[in-house]
Simulated scan of single mutants.
Amino acid sequence: MSDQLNASVVGGKSFTAVAINCASKAGEWIKTKLGNYASLDIKYSSHDLVTEIDKGSERLIKNLVMTHFPHHSFLGEEGVEPGPKASAKALEDKLDAEYLWIVDPIDGTTNFVHGFPFFCVSIALAHKGDVIVGVVYDPVKDELFVAEKGKGAYVHGKRMSVSSEETLRGSLVATGLPADHHYALPVNLKGIAAVAPQVRNLRIAGSAALHMAYVAAGRLSGFWEIGLSSWDLAAGALLIQESGGIVTDTNGKPYDLSVRNVMASNGRIQDELIAALAAANANE
């Protein structure tokens, strides 16, 4: 067993168990607030919303994590100023941490605000920059996606496996509409125009973390998006890798925490999807 896997338990406390507990408790609380938030603020753009529920969920998760692991570092979306530069800087400032919890307290806030049932809690733990635990919890469907590095990925306690589609033509693929209207959104729209005619169909459901969990579970064959942040991707990336899939940037470079333009798939359609974006100049 590697040192990293030995590191998955410290002082008798399982990192994965703590992540699951945090995601479950936050998700249960979020679900009780569906349709009942009090304040709504726009952060970076009209696509980038925050409520007091996002902030409360993050506080709940951080307090639980710090109770168990007071010396760990914590990076949560709501503790960072809006915008791509701020999120990149926040990650850079914490990359040297031995243990770093990376949290999106509600991925899919716009869906939550409108009562559209596609949002989740995303929690990852990185050890020296390498993600070793990933948990994505969908409170509406009560679906818990869990991965531990080297130990596989699971949903409903059953091991997940990516889809078997061999070509884009037979694949259901997802993407998003980025909050950055100046750069990322126009690039992603070019990608949508290029990819949509080449796939079986395209989905834009509004939660990158949940889309990635669906790739891991074989429900989608691929997902890409320009201009995401570490808290959108970290947990979902491990889910996909531990389910037999591939996660890179949109040019094919292997995933790490600094990746903002992501390409994830069952592996079989990865090259074809990267090529489709490149041909449209929609890969960065």
Rank of each mutant, 00 (worst) to 15 (best):
G150T: 02
W231I: 02
A208L: 13
G129W: 08
H156T: 09
Q198G: 01
G236R: 07
C120L: 05
A126T: 04
V146M: 01
W231T: 13
G222V: 03
A209S: 15
L125K: 10
D249G: 01
S243A: 15
S207C: 14
A234F: 02
M160Y: 05
V215S: 07
V199E: 02
V133Y: 04
E143G: 03
E165L: 09
A234G: 08
T250V: 06
S163A: 15
L210Y: 06
M212K: 08
H114I: 02
S221Y: 03
S229G: 04
V195R: 12
E242G: 03
A126S: 15
L202W: 11
A234M: 11
K128H: 12
D142L: 10
V133A: 07
F145S: 10
E242F: 02
S207G: 08
R203Q: 11
V173A: 12
V187L: 15
L210E: 10
F119I: 01
G150P: 01
V195D: 10
V131K: 15
S171H: 01
A217S: 15
S163E: 05
G115R: 12
H156D: 13
S230W: 01
F223T: 03
V133D: 07
V136S: 09
K151R: 15
T167G: 06
L125D: 02
F119S: 01
Y154F: 15
N251M: 02
L202F: 14
G170L: 06
A194I: 11
K151E: 09
K190N: 12
L239A: 10
I123T: 06
I123W: 03
A205D: 13
R159H: 07
Y214P: 00
S229A: 10
A234P: 01
D138C: 07
A184Y: 10
R203H: 07
G157Q: 00
D249E: 02
A209D: 07
A234V: 00
Q241P: 00
A216S: 13
H114A: 04
A126W: 09
T167M: 01
V155I: 11
K151W: 05
A196S: 15
I240E: 07
V195H: 03
L238H: 09
F145D: 00
I204K: 04
A193R: 15
G157S: 13
W224R: 00
A235K: 05
L168I: 01
V131Q: 12
L144R: 13
V162H: 09
S122T: 04
P139V: 11
E225P: 00
T167N: 11
R169M: 08
K151T: 02
K190T: 01
V133H: 14
G245P: 05
P139E: 05
H127M: 06
P117G: 07
A217R: 10
V173Q: 07
P186M: 06
S207Y: 11
G191N: 04
V133E: 10
A213G: 04
R169W: 13
P139C: 14
A124C: 08
Y214M: 14
G218M: 06
L233V: 00
S243H: 07
H182A: 13
H181R: 13
A234W: 03
D232C: 10
L168H: 01
I246W: 05
A208T: 14
H182I: 08
L239Q: 09
N188C: 14
G134K: 11
L220M: 03
F118H: 14
A179C: 04
T167I: 00
L185Y: 12
P117E: 07
L189M: 14
K158Q: 15
T248M: 06
A194M: 05
A153C: 04
T250E: 12
D180F: 06
